[in-house]
Amino acid sequence: MVQAVEAPDSIVDVISTDTCSFMHCAGKLKVLDHQWIQVVFEPPELRVGAIDFRYGRESEVKLQITYIDENNRLGKGSRGSLFVFRMRHGGSTNT
C-alpha cells in the first residue's frame, strides 16, 4: 500500500501487487487539532483486469498522528487500528 499526500489537503491511497494496481482511493485531509486528522475518501476505484469501476460509498477515517522523525510517523485510527508511515523517495508515504 502506498499513500501519497499532496499539499495542501489531498491524499491518494493505492493498493497493488507486483503485477498490478487494483484499488485506488482519493481523499481530502482536514487537520482537527495538533494530534488528530480526518480524511474523507471518495468511493474506491477498483481494477479487475482491463475493467475499472467504483464500488462502495464515501468513507471517513480519523487518525491520531505521532511523529517520530522526518521520515517516520505512527498513526492510530479512532477504532484502534495502528499504522506505520515511512517516507519514500518522491515525497509519498507508505504503510
Rank of each mutant, 00 (worst) to 15 (best):
V2A: 10
V2Q: 10
V2K: 13
V5E: 02
I11Y: 07
I11D: 08
D13L: 10
D13H: 06
S16P: 00
S16F: 05
T17D: 07
T17A: 03
D18V: 09
D18M: 15
T19Q: 14
C20R: 11
C20A: 13
F22R: 04
M23S: 04
A26E: 14
G27P: 05
K28A: 11
L29S: 01
K30R: 14
D33H: 09
Q35A: 01
I37Y: 02
I37T: 06
Q38C: 05
Q38Y: 01
Q38E: 15
V40P: 05
E45T: 06
R47T: 11
G49Q: 02
A50H: 08
I51A: 10
I51T: 15
D52T: 09
D52E: 14
F53L: 11
R54V: 11
Y55P: 00
G56T: 09
R57P: 03
E58V: 10
S59D: 10
S59M: 12
V61S: 12
K62C: 02
K62N: 01
L63W: 08
I65F: 09
I65N: 03
T66C: 02
Y67L: 10
I68T: 09
D69C: 04
N71H: 14
N72M: 08
N72T: 09
R73A: 03
R73P: 00
R73V: 00
G77H: 07
G77Q: 03
G77R: 09
G77L: 04
S78R: 02
R79E: 15
L82W: 04
V84I: 05
F85C: 02
R86A: 11
R88V: 01
R88F: 01
H89R: 13
G90F: 10
G91K: 13
T95H: 11
T95N: 12
T95R: 11
